[in-house]
Design a protein around this nucleic acid. Structure first.
Lengths: 315, 315
DNA sequence: AGCAAGGACTAGAGCGCTCTAGTCAGCGCA
DNA sequence: TGCGCTGACTAGAGCGCTCTAGTCCTTGCT
């Protein structure tokens, strides 16, 4: 395993100085087209690839964004996927650090800091606001999909999502529409309020049934549901799926929230509200790469309605 | 945002040389206990954290292991979770690179190489064997959960898993046990063969029904199933869930394979065979950190039976 | 002809660490 | 007294890049 070629080797091979090779590989002005071609040819021939560590060390600005995500949430995977192209288009690199059952968020963040990231993008952070605010002192920090005071926030509009859900049910002709709520879960209050508002505006009577975040909660709510109700907007997908399996009539329309993996399963096909990962990712990076140290901002993106099999016109 | 403190700052603050600070932070012999305490105190006071980039650059051996994983698979998340503690116990660091719908495996691997990782751990790699073998020339490379020639492999024993499944059904008193197979999917042949062998050894007649990797395939197989069959071992969870929803009798026992997220859902509760992420992770790192350049090895770990609600004693 | 301007290229000092090769006490031992 | 040893500590040369401050050579302009 002889050493990997360095810039020095490429320089020697192309018959130029190391500095010129650097100029060529950084794609900055200062070299003739002919030389560029020659240097690249030499580099390719030797199988040269710039050493990322050295690059980061030498560079004034690292243009590195640290992302902390939780391996347990598929939605974080969607976000990571969306972050890569978004970062590239802004000329930034991404480095990942996983939060797991046994690796706490604080550890994940610390390891990002040890790489001297310029900014931090934290997906659904669970650290106390004070800790996050402290991070934001040192570098731009954005919380994605969670509302936190003291740092930048990129999240989707819960009220708009709830509105979308109820309006979808209305458009199918439903008039007795219930909302199974998420108690004090983040976003629950906004969704509940938006539900009530849309119902009232449509001249209908709101009906909020206590629910929760689990299938069990949804199943329990199904039993409480008045029999004249023809459609339900659930707080989230798990709750909606619980409703789905415990509903008394197969004609009951159900809409979830989140577009989680189970919602997409063949035999479930839950109509739901999806957070748009692309929009969220761009918004997050916009905030993360914002130059001036301005006060924490909040960017709110629009969610999407995903129509599947669990909502049908009222019969 | 004044600069983060460096080793130099800590040295000055503690009244020692930079080299000594390095010795202290690396926890190598060469400093008195008293000095260690003083240096650490100075470091803490300044909020010093070693710069990981510089560390990697300066160090002879980086002790860095690159992990490529696919954000779309929850099992990769489980593996990543298990890899962290395993790496730590071996004194290695981990760096992650995600494969996504839009970020190809080759790109993910290249970015790991740019960090000059000492070895590569690829979760369920999809690159052609020739490409993987080429990687293995330059550094220890291990494929996890996929059998590839030319690189180290850590995977679970498909035959043992299948055996576990059938023996579980036998222990519940079933005698008419079918296997819905996975055609030419990786591992399908091993599972099918093991099923046949266990059945024969128990003096029973094997019955293999053509299946596939999807819920639809499972549902289709349910229709083909002879009515005297009381239990089925499905190729994977998706197939098992398809069977579950299309089965003619609720008494049909079903066992899946993989322990994927849907299998754990409240309303499914699929009995299944789980790959043990911890075992797989340790095996992978064992191979990745193996010093001598020996020929590709294969480590096969034992899967586990996870009993849930879909298997019951024969009635 | 004289000079400024600009393009192509190089020298060399960092970046923040690691690590080898020291220096310098202090000590035991013959 | 002199010698080697050991333990505590320092000097300084890298690691492979980036980037500022040049040098040198054309050009164009007056």
């Amino acid at each position: 395993m002889n050493h990997r070629p360095t810039m020095e080797d490429v320089a020697a091979h192309a018959g130029v100085s190391r500095a010129l090779v650097s100029i060529v590989y950084r794609e900055v002005p200062g070299a003739s087209d002919e030389t560029r071609a020659r240097v690249f040819a030499a580099g390719d021939e030797l199988g040269y690839r710039p050493d990322h560590r050295a690059r980061l060390l030498g560079r004034q600005r690292t243009r590195l964004i640290g992302v902390a995500f939780d391996v347990r949430y598929t939605f974080h995977g969607d976000l990571v996927e969306a972050l890569y192209p978004a970062a590239e288009s802004l000329g930034y690199d991404l480095t990942l650090s996983a939060v797991t059952g046994s690796r706490r968020e604080a550890v994940a963040i610390q390891s990002l800091l040890d790489y001297r990231c310029e900014s931090l993008v934290l997906l659904g952070p669970t650290s106390p606001p004070s800790a996050l605010a402290a991070l934001a002192e040192a570098q731009p920090t954005v919380a994605v999909a969670r509302k936190v005071r003291g740092v930048h926030v990129a999240r989707t509009d819960d009220a708009a999502g709830s509105r979308l859900a109820v309006e979808h049910l209305l458009s199918l002709g439903h008039t007795r529409i219930a909302h199974v709520d998420g108690a004090r879960a983040p976003g629950a209050a906004e969704r509940r309020t938006a539900y009530r508002r849309v119902m009232r505006r449509a001249g209908l009577e709101p009906l909020v049934v206590p629910g929760g975040l689990t299938e069990a909660a949804g199943a329990a709510a199904a039993r409480e549901l008045p029999s004249d109700v023809t459609a339900v907007a659930a707080f989230n997908d798990a709750c909606g799926i619980g409703l789905l399996h415990a509903r008394r009539s197969p004609d009951l329309s159900i809409i979830g929230y989140d577009d989680s993996t189970p919602a997409r399963l063949d035999h479930i096909q839950l109509t739901t509200i999806a957070q748009n990962a692309d929009r969220l990712a761009s918004a997050a990076l916009e905030l993360a790469t914002c130059e001036d140290r301005d006060p924490p901002q909040e960017v709110i993106t629009e969610p999407d309605l995903v129509v599947r099999a669990t909502t049908k016109p009222v019969s």
